[in-house]
């Protein structure tokens, strides 16, 4: 299986939401990392054939996905960033309804629904109406519906939003386990969602794909640019104004700052091992995700 994007662009008015993305995806987990507005969701929608590129092509094994119609949709599992639900449906009925729309036979669907409800830890909520579920539980139902047809291409847009840490770990492990013989595309701004499971990470900024590499190689790019600095409390604002500051931790002898900088930010600064959160901060001048 090979999904190929060639110069994919999506324009809304005068805004280029996705700008000339060219890349190739094969089996495994791909993490799309980027701040809000970086074009992740627009790209995900085009990959799910919900939206068409303004220019450029997306092909699966050489065939344009826009022309494949239900043959493409048949092998697709999709969890949109914002998903509504039919509130009066129970969890079980909702999944049965989606299974039917995915063309699953009743018997196969029943087995799969039981399996997935158990997997997303909602067995005791099976008969609960969707309107009565919490945000996290609804998200878990969303994850379950995406997996109903055993998709060859799984596209999940911000799937861990609303999940508690235990559920996030469970979901990560699940993705890692199923990714062996399928393409899994996961968009997130939470670094820890993809740090250990992504075969490659694609970094999006202002609609452009600025990096695509393994987590190890990406981290390698900014080696020797991450520093640990011990500072007095009064010095912290100055560091924050002049540098990208990650973690700030209070120590017995003052404050320890984690700073991303091309040059040594202080005489007592020492290089520390790099992680993906540092990478995120390096590319996006925003607060690091949880």
């Amino acid at each position: 299986m090979r999904v190929k994007l060639e110069d994919v662009t999506k324009v809304f008015g005068d805004k280029r939401a996705v700008d000339g993305v060219t890349t190739e995806l094969t089996n495994g987990v791909y993490g799309f990392l980027g701040a809000n507005g970086s074009g992740k969701t627009t790209l995900m929608r085009m990959l799910a054939a919900v939206s068409r590129p303004t220019s450029g092509t997306i092909t699966l094994n050489g065939e344009d996905i826009g022309k494949m119609g239900d043959r493409y949709r048949d092998m697709l599992g999709y969890l949109p960033q914002h998903i509504g639900y039919y509130k009066h449906f129970t969890v079980e009925k909702f999944l049965a309804y989606i299974a039917s729309l995915k063309g699953l036979e009743k018997k196969t669907a029943a087995v799969k629904i039981t399996e997935l409800i158990e997997m997303v830890n909602l067995t005791d909520k099976r008969k609960t109406k969707m309107g009565k579920l919490s945000g996290g539980m609804k998200q878990r139902v969303g994850i379950a519906q995406a997996l109903l047809n055993d998709p060859k291409i799984l596209i999940v847009d911000e799937p861990t939003a609303g999940l508690d840490p235990k559920e996030r770990i469970r979901f990560r492990n699940l993705l890692a386990a199923i990714a062996k013989d399928r393409i899994v595309l996961l968009s997130t701004h939470i670094v820890s969602d993809i740090e250990y499971i992504a075969k490659e990470i694609l970094i999006m900024k202002d609609g452009r794909l600025i990096e695509k590499d393994t987590p190890q190689n990406l981290v390698h790019h900014i080696e020797r640019k991450v520093w640990s600095v011990n500072a007095e409390e009064a010095e912290v604002p100055a560091y924050q104004a002049n540098y990208k500051v990650g973690n700030i931790s209070r120590q017995m002898d003052g404050i320890q700052l984690r700073i991303i900088s091309e040059e040594k930010p202080a005489v007592n600064a020492v290089n520390v091992p790099v992680n993906l959160e540092d990478l995120y901060l390096y590319y996006f001048d925003e607060e690091v995700g949880a």
Binding site: R45, A48, A49, V50, D70, R73, D74, L76, Y78, L79, P80, H82, I83, G84, Y85, Y86, I98, L101, K102, G103, Q145, N149
Partner: peptide, 10 residues
């Protein structure tokens, strides 16, 4: 708000 998901189903 189900249309985005339903656009991707068989």
């Amino acid at each position: 708000g189900m249309i985005e998901l339903e656009l991707t189903l068989k």
